[in-house]
Amino acid sequence: MILEVQNLNASYGAVRALKDVSLGVAEKGFCAVLGANGAGKTTLLRTLTGLHRAAGGRVLLEGEDLTRLPAERVVTRGLAHVPEGGGVITELTVEENLRLGGLWRRRRDRVALDEVLDLFPPLAQRISKSASTLSGGERQMLAIGRALMSRPKVLLLDEPSLGLAPLVTRQIFDLLRELRSSTGLTVVLVEQNANGALAVTDSGFVLNQGSVVASGPSAELLSDDRTRHAYLGF
């Protein structure tokens, strides 16, 4: 397990958003975290990368404890997080957004930029344009590209399909799968779009009210009618 979460707890005031969440993601895995609105998916990612303080439990990346690290340090350990909506900085250019992602490395990593641009040709065409001129799909590409600039071991994505047309979502999902097979990157995909996510991932976890209620290979989750009806809504 490259990423291991042990009994993770998190709360907002008196509300417990995560209750003893434990899960493991295999190296080079493509893993989905599913669940309805308010199930705790976003909180899970935010707690993993230190944007939200864990109230208990541990987060291990390749055995290294990241639980108490602030967000700006977590990324330097190899855990990258593309937040909900992408977090693209529209006041900056496409290139500045990308460069920002690799800035914490002392040495300038020209190769990473070229690789990312190869991966996302639309970004290469608009490299010096303001990020505000990008379409929704391109922004999501930029957000993913920026995260890849840090050369992460594990990439966490919070609802990349949000607000995108089904076709564009499909492209992004396929791209993530390609990325996983070409670079060996481990990808964790948080999604409300369970059907689409289970079609591309190889394993999945289902969250409900802050707890893991089901887990297993994606194909099994897809064929398990009870889980599907109860938690995934299709």
């Binding site: 944007l51 700006e72 990324v75 937040p83 977090g87 693209v88 006041e91």
Partner: peptide
């Protein structure tokens, strides 16, 4: 501009 996105970029 975006403190949180900046933090996630280190």
């Amino acid at each position: 501009f975006r403190p949180e996105a900046a933090r996630l970029s280190g």
